[in-house]
């Protein structure tokens, strides 16, 4: 039995839904504003595209290595590797386009005491600070390229397109996005306690590249650490393993639990950090 009355629960649920709706509308406005500000500086936009295309070439060089080597690594054929790389490209776009820029700005926002003004807004401060900016160029280039690679690999692998495979893949991509948001936000939250965290963040940001290759290339204990302790391998490996029908049940359970655990952890660290925040202007 719920500890609160039916009416109160209904009111809470209604208020929660209303808050979510409000934040989704605001997020839509943030995205729109980001697009407008990026289109304003045309060469910046083209340069951004050139940069991401360059990085894409570097990622595709791994595809060349895999196909020209033509070996099966622990059950991963070159086509399966291609599928993995496509997923990696897509998720890189998601993370870099939606979260990375906010993580970078978070450090200076806290250090310079700029949270003061944002605190007065009638929306979640964490939402405002960590999701305000989006780089649609990075997102666009990588997501489009990633989808193309995944579609090619999917058809080469001859995997049936069913609600289960496509739905499960998309659901696990969402899990990966939530995990990437939380995992890479955590080191940046140290800015509440430390003056300059750019070094720590640079090291952890480079950690993203551990997703560029399937975890089957690593030894057993590295895989264990990468899935359960420092869950970096969850990001690209889980959606791929699911589609390839190589996903053990305990990984599925972990995929359901991990985003919730990490979101709670981030929220807890955020609130603790906020208590430690000193305004710079007063």
């Amino acid at each position: 039995m719920w500890p609160w009355g039916g009416r109160t629960m209904r009111t809470t649920a209604y208020e929660f839904a209303r808050e979510i709706k409000k934040h989704l509308i605001i997020y839509g406005l943030f995205i729109r504003f980001s697009v407008m500000s990026q289109m304003e500086y045309r060469w910046n936009f083209i340069g951004n595209m050139a940069m991401e295309t360059g990085y894409l070439c570097a990622k595709l060089s791994y595809v060349v290595v895999v196909y020209r080597s033509n070996v099966t690594i622990n059950g991963f054929t070159p086509d399966a590797m291609l599928f993995f790389i496509g997923t990696f490209v897509m998720l890189t776009g998601g993370y870099a386009g939606l979260f990375m820029i906010n993580n970078f700005r978070l450090r200076t926002t806290i250090r310079d005491g700029n949270l003061d003004l944002l605190m007065t807004k009638p929306v979640s401060l964490q939402f405002l600070v960590t999701m305000r900016q989006a780089n649609l160029t990075l997102l666009g280039v990588d997501v489009i390229a990633g989808i193309i690679i995944v579609v090619i690999a999917w058809s080469r692998l001859g995997i049936a397109i069913t609600l289960w495979t496509v739905g499960g893949y998309i659901a696990l991509l969402m899990v990966s996005l939530v995990v990437s948001y939380s995992l890479f936000l955590l080191p940046n939250l140290l800015s509440f306690w430390l003056l300059n965290t750019s070094s720590i963040a640079n090291i952890t940001d480079s950690f993203w590249d551990f997703n560029s290759m399937p975890m089957v290339i690593y030894s057993g204990w590295i895989r264990l650490i990468g899935v359960f302790i420092l869950p970096i391998f969850v990001l690209t490996n889980f959606p791929t393993l699911f589609v390839l029908d190589k996903m053990p049940t305990h990984y599925l359970i972990w995929a359901a639990l991990l985003p919730i655990l990490l979101l709670f952890l981030v929220r807890w660290v955020w609130l603790r950090g906020l208590r430690n925040y000193n305004s710079a202007s007063s």
């Binding site: 910046n44 340069g47 050139a50």
Partner: peptide, 11 residues
């Protein structure tokens, strides 16, 4: 403004 372009060329 060509900072990003430099990065693309560099990679």
């Amino acid at each position: 403004e060509i900072g990003f372009l430099f990065e693309g060329i560099r990679i």
